[in-house]
């Protein structure tokens, strides 16, 4: 079920990227796409009724029913990278706005 939610968000993100020319909306669509991908990745490591993969005194050492920690570590990294790309995208969009007074790429047209 979680996987379908992730795929749905990925598709919404792709739809947004293909249908808008507004720079801020494009960045939002990219973030929706990244969020969908992150949810999908988390779902890969999901185990029903699984425990957190942290070894404590209460957890038996032969426990097999634990959530895979690797996809979570991947998502953590992917979130940071996505944050960096978003920040840079917003900075570039602000530069474009400063030059053309609009965020709409269809108004700006081809920049030569």
């Amino acid at each position: 079920m979680i996987q379908f939610a992730g795929i749905a968000l990925i598709l919404i993100g792709i739809y947004g990227l293909m249908t808008t020319k507004h720079m801020i909306k494009l960045i939002i669509a990219l973030n929706v796409l990244e969020l969908g991908a992150n949810i999908f990745i988390i779902s890969v490591g999901f185990v029903k009724n699984g425990l957190a993969p942290i070894l404590t005194a209460d957890v038996p050492s032969d426990l097999l029913n634990f959530v895979d920690p690797l996809p979570q570590a991947m998502v953590l990294t992917a979130i940071v990278i996505g944050f960096g790309a978003t920040a840079l995208g917003l900075a570039v969009a602000r530069k474009v706005y400063g030059k053309y007074q609009t965020y709409d790429l269809s108004v700006i047209g081809g920049e030569e």
Partner: peptide, 20 residues
Amino acid sequence: FTHTFHYLILASVGGVFFLL
């Protein structure tokens, strides 16, 4: 900057696909 933005969007989407 619009060219950089175009590049940024495409490369970021490419990155998400590679990650998936």
